[in-house]
Design a protein around this nucleic acid. Structure first.
Length: 877
DNA sequence: TAGGGCACGC
DNA sequence: GACGTACGTGCCCTAG
């Protein structure tokens, strides 16, 4: 191995983690894990890799509590503060971080990280390596040599002092070996190494300059100047010798790792991305994206066509539509690619729209097409005047069904996940933010063509994964057909009464101005009420209201806190009202007006079918799943949602307590099932069972509590969450939950079983085999595990409910068609479907909507659907 | 431009 | 014993 220079970096893991922990404020992520040491460790690692560019590296950790040094001196490292739990919980993540970087780490029973480093650096020196040691512990400087540099953290974590023999000479006038002698004489308080009492750094250095080694000093005490010093040395000979021994880093520890095993590996970007996301390291995520672009791209072959001839297009192909924006209802369509047999075509949207052959092919149900994002594709082709039919595969949905936890950011990440050749990210092709632009035509065609070819390349892998997980039916019979149903709902859109919305806006504006001036008058000054920071100053500093809760950045001014402060000051209720009406104005009046298509006065939301971990849909631009209903003022917003045809009505149908019915079914609990078999009010029934009273003795308070517990069960909240929603103590909340589970023993059994199952299998499943992986269920971290357990209990309930309504939607769409009805399905709000229909179809809907929805699946308890209709969404209540 | 705080729905 | 605790979307504010 001559010629190539090999550079080894050895990092003292514990020491650097400690440094990072104490150098940075106690950051935590959204899951309540502290991350400062992990973050500091990460940034330091990045910097070191960048600056030093080691060819080999390893991180050494201390093993356990006792080391061989304790045999020499029982009290070694005695009196040292215990590792704070906030730090120790971070160590597993540091190991994950190293795993993601494919960096080896090592620990050795009975030895400290120092000894591992000492042993390996000595070996490395013999093998011709240049070595850099990174630590926060100056002891390590004894290892310095011509080939070994020891970098010790100075201030913070990234400022390093580089110890070479000449630097040590300059600083102390000693050789690296003499550092050990120095420690023997002066001791080290942090490791509880005693040394010679009364001898500090200055004296130690003086003695060593005169005599060379500790042994020489002790053998020549007569020659030492100073009577006191002589006495001290004489009395503490043994102590000094022992101290030197303790301070000596061993170079011969039984390290089993070989140097060639430490060669630097490629970073596992997938793992690293996942970890950074989990930890909330967003700034580092951005950097990663930049690095990943360096992957090598193989150009693919494609042919641009202006039209197709009969016979060009086979009975199966991969198809991709490239758009300029995420909103496919409005985005520019940039191009279409078709991967047919061994050829990949590109056609511009203008030419595609003109081609009769292409249109016929797109609309042919017997021609199967594999796509990425069926819903987007259907809508895009719709806009080109073609009805895309015959979709047999969707890479995006398949990927979601296989594992929803892998975020579906863009095509590139999904392709990579399934082992395809690299696809550039859309961001790298188009740029982002203000710099975003369409690339030159060849690059656009290449990019678009590549996607169609990629779908072809990995389709079978995905199908196999689905088959293996028994999810092919969920994919083919539920999610794929649902995409078409959703596409149609989105395309149909919902009509908005703009004038009504604007009128409400004018009225709100007037009210808001009144409230605002009231608040300014009471406060005695003007300020921005929407700024929690400024509001906090007014409430808690000027008005001196009690501070009940603080946030990361200041005083909490959230509604639940303000609610408690209501009796303290008249300003509070005005602020609450200002917030409530302000929300209506900005999000619902102004927000909705912004997204109305002005040619039709309709709103076209987008349902995200591949986002939630439970299988629910989400809705954006606008979000039509959070239109107000609870408070009357907000509920009036729904008056602006109207039928798109004269003399039609809005028809709304919702499942009654679908999640609790699912729970009754899954758990098979008699008590719970009874409520549904007898058609009782489930919250009243729960109150009866939990409080052990007869129906007529259930008070409204009892029912409220029971309802909150049921809510908690459905959403998987903790005792803490329950205590917050009922404003009771955590203990009381925990008692309620216990009583609930005592009342419904088979629910308890289900909860225990599902947690056990999740631990065994690593995932939980819904009725229709939707999976959610829950790796945190085995976490040592109390927090993460608690989360995971509630997720395990809740996902089969909420996910099954999501499965059921999705199935109902598909069947509803089929039924409307089969019955030749004009009725249109418009919206889905988790357990509710909203239609618009001609008045003469109301009667028919009253029959078929509940029928279809209630029979979507058969459970051991009946499903129940309530419905109503009216001239606006508001009136369909 | 990103993140925090807040509020809406289920 | 820890230490924070359904999810998702979108608004406004603030700090960089």
């Amino acid at each position: 191995m001559i010629g190539l220079s090999k550079k080894l970096m050895l990092i003292d893991g514990n020491s650097i983690a400690y440094r990072a922990f104490f150098a940075l404020p106690l950051l935590n992520n959204d899951k309540g894990i502290h991350t400062n040491a992990i973050y500091g460790f990460t940034t330091m690692l990045m910097k070191l890799l960048d600056e030093e560019k080691p060819t080999h590296l390893m991180v050494a950790f201390d093993a356990g509590k006792t080391t061989f040094r304790h045999k020499t001196f029982e009290d070694y490292k005695g009196g040292r503060q215990k590792t704070p739990p906030e730090l120790s919980e971070q160590f597993p993540f540091i190991r994950d971080l190293l795993d993601a970087h494919n960096i080896k780490y090592y620990e050795l029973d009975q030895y400290e990280a120092d000894d591992i480093i000492g042993t390996l650096s000595t070996q490395a020196e013999k093998d011709g390596f240049e070595t850099v040691v990174i630590s926060g512990d100056k002891d390590l400087t004894q290892l310095a040599s011509e080939k070994i540099r020891v970098d010790i953290t100075k201030k913070g974590i990234t400022d390093l002092e580089k110890y070479t023999p000449s630097h040590i000479e300059e600083k102390y006038g000693l050789t690296p070996d003499q550092i050990i002698d120095m420690k023997g004489l002066m001791g080290d308080s942090s490791d509880n190494i005693p040394g010679v009492p009364g001898v500090g750094e200055k004296t130690a250095i003086k003695l060593l300059k005169q005599f060379g080694t500790l042994e020489n000093v002790l053998n020549s005490i007569d020659e030492v100047s100073g009577k006191k010093l002589k006495e001290k040395l004489e009395e503490n000979k043994q102590l000094a010798e022992m101290s030197k021994k303790l301070a000596t880093i061993t170079r011969t520890a039984p390290v089993t790792v070989k140097l060639d095993e430490l060669e630097k590996q490629e970073v596992n970007y997938d793992k690293l991305t996942k970890l950074y996301k989990e930890l909330g390291f967003n700034s580092l995520l951005d950097k990663l994206d930049g690095e990943e672009e360096e992957i090598e791209l193989k150009d693919i072959e494609w042919e641009e066509v202006t039209d197709f001839k009969d016979g060009d297009l086979p009975s199966h192909a991969e198809l991709y539509v490239e758009l300029y924006d995420v909103n496919y209802h409005t985005a520019d369509i940039l191009g279409i690619s078709v991967h047919a047999d061994k050829k990949t075509y590109f056609i511009s949207p203008e030419n595609a729209a003109k081609s009769e052959v292409f249109k016929k092919w797109i609309e042919d149900e017997n021609v199967t097409k594999s796509v990425y994002d069926a819903k987007e594709s259907i809508v895009a082709f719709d806009r080109l005047g073609m009805h895309l039919k015959g979709i047999d595969f969707d890479l995006l949905i398949a990927s979601y069904v296989i594992d929803a936890s892998e975020a579906a950011d863009d095509f590139a990440s999904i392709a990579k996940r399934h082992g395809a050749d690299a696809v550039p990210t859309d961001e790298s092709v188009y740029g982002k933010g203000a710099k975003k632009k369409v690339p030159e035509k060849n690059e656009l065609m290449q990019h678009t063509a590549r996607k169609a070819a990629t779908i072809h390349a990995i389709k079978e892998t995905c199908i196999s994964a689905l088959e293996k997980n028994e999810q092919l039916e969920l994919f083919e019979k539920l999610e794929l057909p649902l995409a078409a149903v959703l596409a149609e709902m989105e395309r149909t859109g919902v009509q908005v009464d703009i004038d009504r919305l604007k009128d409400m806006g004018v009225e709100l504006k007037k009210k808001l101005e009144e409230i605002q001036s009231d608040i300014y008058r009471i406060a005695g000054e003007e300020f921005n009420i929407n700024s929690p920071k400024q509001l906090g100053v007014i409430l808690f500093e000027n008005l001196k209201l009690p501070v009940l809760k603080k946030t990361k950045t200041g005083y909490s001014t959230s509604a639940d806190i303000l609610e408690k402060l209501k009796p303290e000051h008249e300003i509070i209720e005005h602020i609450l009202l200002f917030r409530q009406l302000g929300k209506l104005q900005s999000t619902y009046i102004e927000g909705l007006l912004k997204v109305i298509h002005d040619d039709s006065n309709k709103i076209h939301t987008r349902y995200n079918q591949v986002l939630t971990q439970t299988g629910r849909l989400s809705s954006t631009d606008p979000n039509l799943q959070n239109i107000p209903i609870r408070l009357e003022e907000g509920r009036k917003i729904r008056q602006a949602f109207v039928p798109s045809e004269k003399e039609w009505v809005m028809f709304a149908a919702d499942y009654s307590q679908i999640e609790l019915r699912v729970l009754a079914h899954i758990s098979d609990d008699e008590g719970l099932k009874e409520a549904f078999h007898k058609g009782m009010d489930v919250h009243t029934k729960t109150a009866m069972d939990v409080f052990g009273v007869a129906k007529e003795n259930v008070t409204s308070g009892m029912r409220r509590h029971a309802k909150a517990v049921n809510f908690g069960i459905v959403y998987g909240i903790s005792d803490y969450g329950l205590s917050q929603s009922l404003d009771i103590t955590r203990k009381e909340a925990a008692d309620f939950i216990k009583k609930y589970l005592d009342s419904y023993p088979k629910v308890k059994e289900y909860m225990d079983d599902i947690i056990h199952e999740a631990k065994q299998k690593g995932y939980v499943e819904t009725l229709l085999h939707r999976r959610r992986y829950i790796p945190e269920i085995t976490s040592r971290n109390f927090n993460l595990r608690g989360f995971a357990e509630r997720t395990a209990m809740n996902t089969p309930i909420q996910g099954t409910a999501a499965d059921i309504i999705k199935k109902a939607m598909i069947e509803m769409a089929e039924r409307l068609k089969a019955e030749n009805l004009q009725t249109r399905m418009l919206l889905q709000v988790h357990d509710e479907l909203i239609f618009e229909c001609p008045k003469d179809e109301i009667e028919k809907l009253e029959q078929i909507v509940p029928e279809v929805m209630e029979s979507a699946v058969e459970l051991s308890v009946p499903l129940k659907v309530d419905y109503s209709y009216g001239s606006t969404w508001y009136d369909a209540k």
